[in-house]
């Protein structure tokens, strides 16, 4: 087991180094001089320019610059924003909880709706219900989520006035940021109604962000269930006279869930990419909105550090999913040990 963990974990290192190469190249590939952007409209005298080039190490050979970059990363230095002058790492972790909160709620929405949809479609295969579920799934999968989010706002916020249009909390409340998770912070604060406000702000972004994972989960559950329902042990369970509900939920679902769990884990990337669009529309103060603003302001150190951090988190989550998968399914573990 330890061997399996080490083998899988060691695969992450070259990928991580590769991503650092990519983010390192990012700043150097931008046309023009990295200093010009920092200097702004006033420009620089040639002497000051040379001084700054030396200060940031841009005058050294590329390989040395890359070595320095890795050295700084190892020390936890992800650079400084050109706009706010704050360390990128600090800015990232200020916003990260907001994105995690949104992504978790979106995932819960996707699983709670998608899983039963997939099961129903598999059990009632070939019926109207099956077609309806699969039609919904393929539509959800094709959905441009930025438009879907706009439609949700149009219907639920503008027409019905049920939910707020944007933000995380109504402006009448003030909640101290203790954990960074608004749902927890609002409960801890003494403000009455703050929790309700936080929940109502979360609903539409979660639905918008969760739609594509929902479609994927529904499809995956259906095909996985269909496969399992033909297995001998399911037939045995039926033959024993167990109730159809018990056969489906206990005997079939447990085995069908293995691939679904992987899909749920691997959806992190989808959620973080979707967060860029969702957060932009709902003015959600998370890392997606932060990154896109950095791109628009041409704040390259922030883009560089932010992309690296996002990629690292995705890699770590994928690693965790793989390891968990190995724990759930011994066949994977042993297969990788043999090769």
């Amino acid at each position: 087991m330890l061997k399996f963990i080490f083998r899988r974990a060691s695969l992450v290192i070259p990928t991580f180094l590769g991503v650092t190469l990519l983010t390192f190249a990012l700043v150097r590939l931008v046309p023009g001089d990295p200093l010009e952007m920092m200097a702004g409209e006033r420009g620089l005298t040639p002497e000051r320019h040379a001084e700054l080039m030396a200060q940031y190490g841009y005058d050294r050979p590329l390989l040395e610059q890359y070595g320095l970059y890795l050295y700084e990363l190892a020390g936890g230095d992800f650079g400084r924003s050109v706009v706010t002058k704050k360390p990128v790492l600090q800015e990232f972790f200020e916003r990260f909880p907001a994105t995690v909160e949104l992504a978790l709620c979106a995932m819960i929405f996707a699983v709670v709706i998608g899983l039963p949809m997939g099961i129903l479609a598999a059990v009632r295969r070939g019926t109207v219900l099956d077609y309806a579920v699969m039609g919904t799934a393929v539509t959800g999968f094709s959905m441009p989520i930025f438009w879907w989010a706009l439609l949700l706002v149009l219907f639920f916020s503008v027409n019905l006035g049920w939910t707020p249009v944007s933000g995380r909390l109504s402006a009448v409340y003030w909640v101290e940021a203790r954990t960074g998770f608004m749902l927890i912070d609002s409960l801890l604060s003494n403000e009455k109604g703050a929790f309700g406000s936080a929940v109502s702000h979360l609903i539409l972004p979660s639905v918008a962000l969760g739609t594509i994972p929902l479609a994927i989960i529904a499809r995956m559950t259906r095909s996985s269930m269909l496969e399992v329902l033909n297995e001998d042990y399911v037939r045995t369970a039926r033959a024993k006279g167990l109730s159809p509900f018990r056969v489906v939920t206990v005997h079939a679902l447990r085995n069908a869930l293995i691939p679904v769990v992987t899909v749920v884990g691997l959806a992190t990337g989808i959620l973080l990419a979707g967060a860029i669009l969702t957060e932009t529309i709902f003015s959600w103060p998370g890392i997606g909105k932060w990154l896109i603003e950095a791109v628009r302001r041409r704040d390259y150190p922030t883009v560089q550090g932010g992309v690296l951090l996002v990629a690292t988190i995705i890699m770590l989550v994928n690693l965790l999913v793989d390891l968990l998968y190995g724990v759930i399914n011994p066949r994977i573990r042993h297969a990788s040990e043999r090769t």
Binding site: P14, T15, V30, V295, R298
Partner: peptide, 24 residues
């Protein structure tokens, strides 16, 4: 294949945004 794995480590939209950030 390693190169391809690195590119797949980033969500597609994020990588596309990074490339547009470089190219304009």
């Amino acid at each position: 294949m390693r190169l391809m794995d690195i590119m797949l480590a980033l969500p597609a939209l994020l990588l596309a945004i990074v490339i547009v950030a470089i190219l304009g």
